[in-house]
């Protein structure tokens, strides 16, 4: 049984004219327990919105889920009441946000903010909660937790703040952690520290991790499986080694090629993906990457959404003839 099963998720935002702009267009995701799934894509591809929808944290009333189901342990999160979902947020599903300064309350001490998780979800007494908080701070590598617990967020460095956010997300030993670009705001040496901490803690608690990032290097280091998003859809999904060794979709191949390498000789020109990400209002109904693909595309492919097919075991790709490397049998 999958821990989390998302089927046909469709999310739209209302613009000022009252039109719905579809940001996430029919996304399927599944996550087994203990697994790490990477969700990769450029800004505006809908990866963060997908993650926020899982916890029903979309901005209200502009953002709305039009369609689909989100099954958490076989119960649809979309049919739950706000009270029920609140008991899952932070307890069964923890969330780590990109910018720790915005995720923490600047006017409360960090100790108090971590205490709150225990007070709310575990119904502990203050003294007991503090005891657990100090243990948690120790676990995420905060030196002298009993002193630091009285600090305010601004007194800590970026890396330390992110450790606090991680402590809060993991306090109730959730079954799933959603991390939205957890290391993007951090320096590379601190990023390595935070990624290592996250994977250690994940291993200890056997939790699943949904890691949202734009950095394919981070994906290679931490994830078991990867889903690549473009224009609100998942265009390719595969185990990490397969995706890096034999990417099937032109977008994935373009992304991998455009990472400047540290070891290869410097080329006169870096390979690029031509064109740019289309605006939300200009998205076509068919294959969204075809206009940027170097191969010839026919009008029909821009109008009919290509099927998502399994080309090899566990390796799924959106089967557009202009973008995907396909065998003959996959097309039939």
């Amino acid at each position: 049984m999958n821990l989390l099963e998302v089927r046909g998720l469709k999310v739209a935002f209302e613009n000022e004219k009252g039109e719905d702009l579809v940001v996430v267009d029919g996304v399927d995701l599944s996550l087994e327990s203990g697994q790490t799934l990477g969700l990769v894509g450029e800004s505006g591809c809908g990866k963060s919105v997908s993650a926020l929808s899982l916890l029903r944290l979309l901005p209200h009333p502009a953002g709305k889920i039009l369609n689909g189901s989100i099954l958490w342990k076989n119960v649809d999160l979309l049919s739950m009441s706000s009270d029920q979902i609140r008991s899952i947020r932070g307890k069964e599903i923890g969330m780590i946000f990109q910018e720790p300064m915005n995720a923490l309350n600047p006017s409360h001490t960090i100790g108090r903010q971590v205490d709150e998780v225990f007070l709310t979800h575990r119904e502990m007494k203050q003294a007991e909660a503090r005891e657990h908080t100090l243990k948690m701070l120790q676990k995420v590598g905060i030196p002298e937790p009993n002193v630091r617990a009285n600090d305010y967020p601004h007194q800590l460095s970026g890396g330390m703040r992110q450790r606090i956010v991680i402590a809060m997300a993991l306090a109730c030993e959730p079954d799933l952690i959603i991390a939205d670009e957890p290391t993007t705001a951090l320096d590379v040496t601190i990023q390595a520290q935070v990624l290592q901490l996250m994977s250690e803690l994940q291993e200890q608690s056997a939790a699943s991790l949904l890691l949202i990032t734009h950095d394919l290097g981070v994906v290679a280091q931490t994830c078991d499986e990867v889903a690549v998003m473009y224009g609100g859809r998942i265009v390719e999904r595969a185990p990490v080694s397969k995706l890096f060794q034999s990417p099937k979709h032109a977008y994935t191949r373009g992304l991998l090629a455009s990472i400047p390498s540290l070891t290869d000789p410097v080329q006169a020109k870096l390979p690029v993906i031509q064109g740019m990400v289309p605006a939300l209002a200009d998205l076509n109904t068919g294959c969204r990457f075809a206009p940027r693909s170097t191969h010839h595309h026919e009008q029909e492919w821009l109008e009919v959404r290509p099927p998502f097919v399994e080309v090899e075991e566990n390796h799924w790709v959106e089967a557009c003839p202009a973008c995907a490397v396909l065998n003959k049998k996959d097309l039939s």
């Binding site: 040496t189 990023q191 390595a192 290097g217 290679a220 280091q221 080694s241 890096f244 540290l262």
Partner: peptide, 16 residues
């Protein structure tokens, strides 16, 4: 510490 896009590096963090 630069994460390399190479799945062989899975789970290997060079931590300073």
């Amino acid at each position: 510490s630069i994460p390399q896009p190479d799945p062989k590096m899975h789970g290997k963090f060079s931590v300073l």
